[in-house]
Design a protein around this nucleic acid. Structure first.
Lengths: 96, 96
DNA sequence: TGAATAGTTGAGCAAGTATTCATATATTAT
DNA sequence: ATAATATATGAATACTTGCTCAACTATTCA
């Protein structure tokens, strides 16, 4: 197939977005709908700081979008392609 | 969606398999057909040791299978689901 | 048998990453 | 204005990971 080095890097980066347990859990929750940082933190039993750090990464990868409302920030999923990959990966894990 | 911790870990591990440039390049070559370690190493301009280390990981994840012939070892792809994920990821990278 | 070839493996190192902690910013409430 | 709340961020730390190097096994060739 002979990928260029650039394409190989981009592909690895794409999958890296989903290669961490915390990010996987964040995404699995956001599939239900938008949620604030503190609500995510409570759900995940993680500190708000740790969640915020991961959300920054997901933001930079354009996987989530932030909406500010008062002093809260609500996050939603923003990349249909990656979410589709996520669902397919999940199918694989759940049934064969 | 509320994944169990175990499922989240398994999903992250699945995507981790494809989250490194070297592994992506190895898989992209093996899509064409089986290849020996040294041939892979030459194609990828990597040492045989580095390739062998990555192949071990891919073997443990059941992504590739090894076939020994004389003193050579030929590797082929072994997990259709993950290869399907790979192709979808590639589509995403190649066209939008 | 001895030398050469193909691959594997473990140790060690360098680079990357996720979390915590402390601090900073922004918004709301009193 | 002050205090409290929600989030973001930088530095430090602990952990992970991919590579190199050296040593090892297995196979073929002379």
């Amino acid at each position: 197939m002979k990928l260029t080095e650039l394409k190989a890097i981009q592909l690895a980066e794409l999958f890296s977005a989903l290669s961490d347990t915390s990010r996987v859990r964040i995404i699995s929750i956001l599939i239900e709908g938008e949620m604030s940082v503190s609500a995510l933190a409570e759900e995940l039993k993680m500190t708000e700081s740790a969640v915020s750090h991961q959300l920054r990464g997901l933001r930079q990868m354009r996987l989530v979008r932030a909406r500010k409302s008062g002093r809260q920030v609500f996050y939603t999923l923003d990349d249909k392609h990656v979410i589709d990959l996520f669902q397919r990966g999940l199918d694989h894990v759940l049934h064969g």
